[in-house]
Design a binder for these strands. Structure first.
Lengths: 200, 200
DNA sequence: CCAAAAATTGACCAATTGGTTAAATTAAAT
DNA sequence: ATTTAATTTAACCAATTGGTCAATTTTTGG
């Protein structure tokens, strides 16, 4: 048998390198040679562990996003008061974004260019949260609008400063500290904003 | 001299074809041969009119996004009551998105991968609107938060359903008519939401 | 220690890529 | 009508790309 530790190590190095390169350059822009260099290994070894560029990308993508969506699912199931639940979701979302600012555009791009991957994502989390929103609206605790309007609002409010970062920093000539402060204050701001929006 | 009409026609065909392909496949994913085919011309003719892939992409990108941002600048200068101005911006933004749903992710991707193009964008529009927000906050007409929080909220609320469309339709198994209805109702929803958020 | 299995590599390949060029066609000018 | 300039094309090119393979090194199990 093979040395599992070393094998795992190499696989891990590839995983990290590929993640970095795919996130930075996108699928079409990524180069297998660049990934190999980044991992400090031979290009042929990439194909030895993961058969093709597509398979490598697909595996990384699915693992990363399923991890995120399963976190959402757990949150939605927790026994909490409604706004507490919303707050927890927002916190979790913001935390994830602070660590992976590229996730939203990555997700959108991938769904657009590799629609076959959608089916491999386990989206219970989003569905459960939508269910919660619908039942709250029926109870009259929040405004009566299609739950998608609310869902996209929460996500949009959380995501936008991350998406807009490079553009906003340039347009308004901001420095990193200033923008980081905006990002840090975003969570509390979104929580207040959502409360204001949802008030019946 | 050359026949200007025919020349313009060819250039226009290239322009349209390239716009379509770049929007669909992204810069890295786009192929000059595909653009040539789409335009119904020889690939060498692409390089005759636009010297390189980069130049072709840059010109199209700058023209399209400057047109949008200059619209914003005009709106910001109009003599209107504050919320009327906000509403007009939202309307203009939604209208643009309905016709060009790919613009947000295109903008973000381009800024990330071709940062040198930012400098060629004329962003007065955004700056003026930020100024308006700041002065309204000082007057106490709206909540006192960093104007970027508001700006990103307006944009995020408008954009999100367009960005999320392919994913949302799949997760929740929605049909096109249903989703179109959500998009059509988005403008009024965002206007109400922003009013609720901004109330001091 | 040794043979089998697994991991790793360098050299290579066919296909694709953006881009060029010289020749052919078409339009303009005199 | 003929020269000149602009447009268009087919063929070509060098570089890059994802991917393969035979050979070598390392690890493992007996």
């Amino acid at each position: 048998m093979v040395n599992k530790e070393i094998a795992l190590d190499t696989e891990e190095k590839i995983w990290k390198a590929a993640t970095k390169v795919f996130e930075r350059d996108g699928y079409a822009g990524a180069r297998m040679q660049v990934i190999a260099d980044e991992a400090g290994i031979n290009k042929a070894l990439l194909h030895y562990y993961f058969r093709s560029k597509e398979k490598l990308f697909g595996k990384i993508f699915i693992e990363k996003y399923n991890k995120f969506f399963s976190t959402l699912a757990i949150l939605a199931d927790q026994d909490m008061e409604f706004f507490e639940k919303i707050d927890t979701v927002i916190d979790s979302y913001m935390e994830m974004l602070l660590e992976n600012p590229e996730m939203p555009s990555m997700l959108i791009n991938t769904i657009t260019h590799h629609p076959e991957l959608i089916d491999k994502l386990n989206m219970e989390g989003a569905q459960k949260i939508r269910g919660v929103l619908q039942s709250e609206a029926e109870k009259g605790n929040i405004i009566a609008v299609e739950s998608l309007q609310i869902l996209t609002s929460v996500v949009g409010l959380c995501i936008m400063p991350f998406l807009a970062k490079p553009i906003a920093m340039h347009i308004f000539k901001l420095d990193m500290e200033f923008y980081q402060e905006v990002l840090n204050k975003r969570g509390p701001f979104v929580k207040k904003a959502i409360r204001a929006i949802l008030k019946p």
